[in-house]
Lab assay of single mutants.
Amino acid sequence: GVRVRALYDYDGQEQDELSFKAGDELTKLGEEDEQGWCRGRLDSGQLGLYPANYVEAI
């Protein structure tokens, strides 16, 4: 996976979405899909989806 850092807070709206705060680091686990979602893993171990444009590569 690729380490990325959140640029903005994001509150997951669905069960399969991650929630994070600006500045949090997570691991991107795949390329974004056509809707702009990426699969990732928080350092807590939680897996889920997040909007790709909310993070930057570290």
Rank of each mutant, 00 (worst) to 15 (best):
D16V: 09
Y10V: 04
E31Y: 06
Q15G: 10
Y8C: 04
Q13S: 09
V4Y: 14
E17F: 14
V55Q: 01
E25H: 11
D33S: 11
Y10R: 09
S19H: 07
C38H: 04
G36F: 04
Q15M: 10
L42D: 06
E31V: 12
E25Y: 14
A57W: 07
Q35V: 05
Q35P: 09
D16I: 09
E17N: 06
Y50A: 03
D24S: 05
G45Y: 04
C38V: 11
R5H: 08
V4I: 08
D43K: 11
G23F: 03
L49M: 12
A22Q: 15
A6G: 02
D16Y: 06
L18E: 02
G30M: 09
Y50K: 02
E56G: 06
G36P: 05
Y50W: 01
Q15S: 10
D33M: 07
D43F: 06
D9F: 01
S19Y: 05
G36W: 01
L26H: 01
S44R: 05
E56D: 06
G40W: 00
L49T: 15
Q15Y: 07
D24G: 05
A22W: 02
Y50Q: 02
F20N: 00
R41T: 06
V55Y: 01
D16E: 13
L42G: 04
G30C: 14
Y10T: 02
S44Y: 03
D24N: 07
G12P: 07
D43T: 05
D43E: 12
P51S: 07
K21T: 08
V2F: 15
C38L: 02
A22L: 07
R41I: 14
E25Q: 14
G40A: 07
L18H: 01
Q46Y: 06
E14S: 12
D24P: 00
D11N: 14
A52S: 13
D43C: 07
G23P: 00
K28R: 13
E17D: 05
L29E: 12
L26G: 01
G36A: 04
V2H: 09
D9S: 12
G1F: 07
V4W: 03
D9W: 00
D9M: 02
V55E: 02
W37C: 09
W37D: 05
E31W: 06
E56V: 10
Y50H: 03
D9N: 08
G45E: 03
L26Y: 00
P51Y: 03
I58W: 04
E34K: 15
